[in-house]
Nucleic acid binder design. Sequence first.
DNA 1: GATACAAGTTGCACATTATGGAACTTTAGG
DNA 2: CCTAAAGTTCCATAATGTGCAACTTGTATC
Lengths: 264, 264
Amino acid sequence: MAETEGPGPGLKSLDAALGVLAHMARADGAQSLSDIARDCGMPRSKVHRYLASFVAAGLAKQEGRSGRYDLGKEAIHLGLSALARHDFVNHAAEDLPDLAALSGMTVLLSVWGNDGATVVRWERGASPAVTSMGLGTTLPLLNSATGRGFLAWAPEGAIGRIRDQELRRATRNPLLLPDATPSRAGLRSLVAKLRQRGYASVDGDFIPGLVALAAPVLDWQNEAQAVITLIGVDPAVLDPDSEAVKILRDYCARKSVQTAPATT
Amino acid sequence: MAETEGPGPGLKSLDAALGVLAHMARADGAQSLSDIARDCGMPRSKVHRYLASFVAAGLAKQEGRSGRYDLGKEAIHLGLSALARHDFVNHAAEDLPDLAALSGMTVLLSVWGNDGATVVRWERGASPAVTSMGLGTTLPLLNSATGRGFLAWAPEGAIGRIRDQELRRATRNPLLLPDATPSRAGLRSLVAKLRQRGYASVDGDFIPGLVALAAPVLDWQNEAQAVITLIGVDPAVLDPDSEAVKILRDYCARKSVQTAPATT
DNA sequence: GATACAAGTTGCACATTATGGAACTTTAGG
DNA sequence: CCTAAAGTTCCATAATGTGCAACTTGTATC
């Protein structure tokens, strides 16, 4: 039915099960088994058995009363174990306070997942741009500076792999793109512009009144390992010659080198 | 070989695959396929196929040159999505700075996984007890205050489920238990003592020179959802009547109520 | 308070799908 | 250049997951 992608590398049943897991991560919160089954296009019994295994492994849990399923504590354990091994995250995380102090803005460190950008660490600035934000918050792909930053420096072909669903969600906001047309071609032109300029930005079209700048921490293949975002309230920072832009670009350029391949 | 646990709830192949994933989370870093296969007691071809699916899903990745496998970015995404939904974490995280300021000690917020306690958030105190610690650091089960805290307030039966391997690892340090005998019975008696006292502690037997206090944030079933740990250098805080103990107990008692079941 | 409806769970016969040994390829070392 | 070890692919076998439908449980309706 969907053999468009080639031979399929792994196990069919495992792939299906991981699809369920990914869906749960993508969802806003706990979901009923029926909803998951419908969204994933699988029979209920199949999903039920998958979830049984996930629950046994601690990756999912069933909410006591409602019976709905949500991610479990072992998922946290897994994710943070992964986080601990991506050194760039911890390197960068230690510098967030400095960046916040320098710029006075709220500083975010995010990593890129298949379904959006995830905030890994953040630091409040002097001006109260953003006062509260949960770790793990997923930022939208197109109408946030962070998301655009990832988009612009993502691995080759990532734009083609974006789910249509994701694009549709982004389209809700008409300020999104210069021409308000989130076609793949439009995306590619936006991306080209951002890469040349060196940073991404939004001007109140994600959260009215907020402006944001984002620049990537690149690995040796020029792909974004993480993104640093500065969030503030003063539109002046959007000026390409502003102090904030300078701080951000300087920092990211400096950090990008550290992720060089081991000489051995 | 290990049908001791009953009928096995889910899918055999999925369970096996998740076992591989859990093993990767447990490992110190990237591992070769052969090592994973050996440690999990599976044929190499099986592990290879599992890993192919994991890589396709982004949960694992293969290091460019060495060919070793490690957790991927999608694992981070998954874990942080899970983290974002466990409200207690974000609630508690916002209070860490206050606790650090009050006590002057380094404050840790950790969650419990099947294989250890994972640091989710931490805040430096005034005195430089711990100056650097990566997010996602896994703390040992027995010779850390955090681990002991989880042990003491873990779900019923958790002690029985601890892997022997874990116990053996803990035994390396003879200061571990009063009688230095990490038998299940010894554990249960230690746990009973801790529950009664209301907090766990270590005195330099994890890292010489450091002392630590830990108390749980309990849910409505009196099980530990998270643990708050205070780390310092002054042995005086170990006194049951010390200011630090008072701060910690007060805070955890106050927080534990907030996780009450929804009235709906 | 009884009935109907929906969601969650379990059982079963079938054949699709995962399995593991061995063969093959590639990389590292002597 | 040859040996050894690790990673990857092949393939026949049967064990395994699959979907449907029956059953159970919980919730809304009348």
